[in-house]
Write a protein that binds this DNA or RNA. Structure first.
Lengths: 125, 125
DNA sequence: ATAACTGTGATATTACAATTAGCACAGTTA
DNA sequence: TAACTGTGCTAATTGTAATATCACAGTTAT
């Protein structure tokens, strides 16, 4: 669990945690039925309140990303297709690109930006 | 001044206003030395408090987007290259694309998204 | 000079959300 | 029994957005 939190960010901590965990699952660092560190342990490690962490995990559970067993722990669901996590990101990209377009950005500028990010990859992965 | 505000958005009203004004400038609807509607008039039109509007305009002024003359009004600066406004957006796009990549999104998925947004334009404008 | 505008500045207040603290309770496991 | 786990709740704190007023100074036209 390598979670980085920007305490000065405008986006709430619990949102950052949600995103980090989703990323970890997408990257394959967390697989189905993997157990997460306990709330108390993780909240201590991240130096955040257990309630803040609990909120993140509760929301992830209602989204079907994780499931929890009282007394045992919190685990990664097995129906967590990484594809689902992309939807929000795609919407965000879409909005940004529309703004950029409205500001006069050329399509080529944006595609080049993306090319650079994906540069060095063998396939379009 | 066609400013739309989402009062239920998580992003503050004054931030939305800043963005809308920058967009209007980028679109050419507002040109250098154009005078904006007065604070009182605009705050009344948008049904927001004058202080909220003032905050937006004050920040725009410290960013060099506008300048104000007490007693006269608020005007668009002439050094406002629309290009500058794009920087933040480009950073945001970059971050989103990196996340999408980390989640396993293929480059083609993203470029196609952009193609669709720019679809129907004569040139890559 | 007066009136009617402009932007500016300050204060106070309200409202809401994020975060923290602390406690109690129930399930699990050795 | 002890030491963990997650859960639920209340309360307090904090920060910030947004509002409501008021006063002041510069500009402009009459």
């Amino acid at each position: 669990m390598n979670i980085l939190i920007d305490y000065h960010s405008r986006t709430p901590i619990y949102e950052q945690i949600k995103k980090e965990i989703k990323l970890a699952i997408s990257r394959g660092e967390l697989k189905a039925d993997d157990q997460l560190p306990s709330l108390r342990q993780l909240s201590s490690q991240l130096s955040i309140n257990i309630n803040t962490l609990k909120r993140a995990l509760s929301e992830l559970e209602s989204e079907g990303v994780t499931y929890s067993i009282a007394g045992k722990g919190i685990f990664v669901s097995d129906n967590t297709s990484a594809r689902n996590f992309c939807k929000d990101i795609f919407d965000e990209i879409s909005n940004c690109v529309k703004s950029a377009k409205a500001m006069g950005a050329k399509k080529e500028e944006i595609t080049e930006l993306i090319e650079n990010i994906y540069k060095g990859d063998v396939k379009g992965d």
